[in-house]
Amino acid sequence: MLKKLCMAGLLCASLALAQGGYGGGRSKQGAGDLDPTTGRGGGARPSNRFDYIAQVLNLNKDQKRDVHTILEDGAKEAAPIRDQMDKSRVVVGEAIVSKKGEDELKQLAKSSSDLDAQLSELEVQAFFKTVGTLDETQKKNMQGLGRALFLMNGMYHIKNWTEE
């Protein structure tokens, strides 16, 4: 069984790497010409992060609505943390410029990176909730899931999570 696990993992990993995103290596062609879930032509080019997520997960209309709500709710929860993090980074920057002692600098940096980690956790939670809306076929699309998680990486670190 271990062998099977390794095989499955390796297969997925190699697929992800070999297909190179939208399945075409380093083509100069616009990605909108390719369907992210199949690597074949025909898909419209998504215009923002949410559309990309919807596309890689192959969401239907109802799922799109639900996932949008999930991601939007997460963004609301993330907003005050992000504001706090931005301010804390300025404080760290000031400490660096004024050459504060290492201990003090470490403490300030830790406070700031903890906020960063909280935002990352919110992103992962949003991903987890998103997976909860998927049907069984969609859940088996490992590459799509991997890409969706990747696309959600950092989304709450910016003011408009869907921004391109």
Binding site: L11, A16, L17, M142, G146, L149, F150
Partner: peptide, 15 residues
Amino acid sequence: KVLITGFAMAALAVA
């Protein structure tokens, strides 16, 4: 488990 392992590997590989 197989699926999740596959997913984790795929996500890491993509990243």
